[in-house]
Design a protein around this nucleic acid. Structure first.
Lengths: 179, 179
DNA sequence: CCAACCATGTAAGCTGTTACATGATTGA
DNA sequence: TCAATCATGTAACAGCTTACATGGTTGG
């Protein structure tokens, strides 16, 4: 029995349901009223994704009252979520899945484990600096020196925002440590 | 006859082909050796996308030599690309399609119209500042004040990097104006 | 009673990925 | 000649979106 692969939206739902048991409709409302994720709040997104999580045994319904179906995490769901949240941040997370990394940071608070959050931020900062170094190396390398001026400036945008992300992680560590 | 809708990858290919006529293989190598876009360099991505562009009359093949099929832009392709490149940057481009906005900036150089690039950067900076204002408003608003500490810090990451993007645009304008 | 909202779902389609498959060209 | 590289393609599927469809509940 291999671990089920979970989509980005699936992880987002898992985290929100861990926060408090919710119905599909309640989850839709979250996506409609918060700016954090870019997912559609349409029923065609959430309900099928919930069905998959249920099929994989990560969430389950409490005996429904009326037409509302409220989901909560199963033990397997808790484990899966914790494993996702506590995995170290890799360089690829910075370049390609930054939104997911930030979602993980927000959800980490629910684990009630300040050390886990600090470990996350530390690996986030390291990964960000590594990514920045990769971009600098690219700019200095063979492919990089052949870039047109504006392509180079575009890559520099990535470099600057990545440094900004690293600084954010450093600052967040400081703030959370100081309470 | 409505304008054909073009995928993100389609626009990327259009820009690269405008730079110089290329084969599918040559386009794949670009995605493999440059860090700018996150697209897969696998044939399953590029060849179908090229076929769509050809079907829509935006690219065409030069009489092939051997097995190599080299594509160039048609007049319609040039028009479509120019329209995409010169459209003003909207707030949504900053929050949801930043990668595409930066690709547009890199490709804009090919239009040989410095004013178009400066207009782009100006609208980019305006859009970024508007997006930052939206995030600040969200944090100050009803939904924002109910956020947990770490959710708030996560949104602040978006705020900081958005300011960083705006500063990049301002700096790029200055650099390009000064030559 | 009816409008607004609560609540769930399906169907079709777009975009892209991974994996598989094939053959031509070329330099050592 | 044979390995590496050049070169193109298909099939299956994942993940999500938009649009459509349906019915329950509740407050004015």
């Amino acid at each position: 029995m291999t671990a089920p692969s979970i989509s980005r939206l699936g992880f987002a739902l898992l985290g929100l349901i861990k926060g408090e048991p919710r119905s599909g409709y309640a989850l839709r409302m979250v996506f409609e009223t918060t700016a954090i994720s870019t997912y559609s709040s349409s029923p065609g997104s959430i309900y099928p994704a919930l069905k998959v999580l249920e099929k994989d045994g990560l969430v389950a319904q409490r005996p429904p009252t009326g037409t509302k179906r409220t989901f909560h995490l199963t033990a397997a769901g808790e484990d899966t979520l914790r494993a996702w949240l506590t995995a170290p941040v890799e360089e690829e997370d910075i370049g390609k899945r930054l939104d997911m990394a930030l979602l993980r940071f927000a959800f980490l608070e629910m684990l009630q484990d300040p050390q886990a959050t600090l470990r996350f931020l530390d690996s986030f900062e390291t990964a960000a600096r590594a990514h920045a170094a990769s971009l600098e190396q690219f700019l200095a390398g063979e492919a990089g020196t052949k870039l047109s001026l504006q392509s180079r400036i575009a890559v520099e945008h990535g470099l600057k925002t990545t440094f900004c992300s690293a600084a954010w992680a450093a600052d967040a560590q400081r703030r959370l440590r100081e309470g």
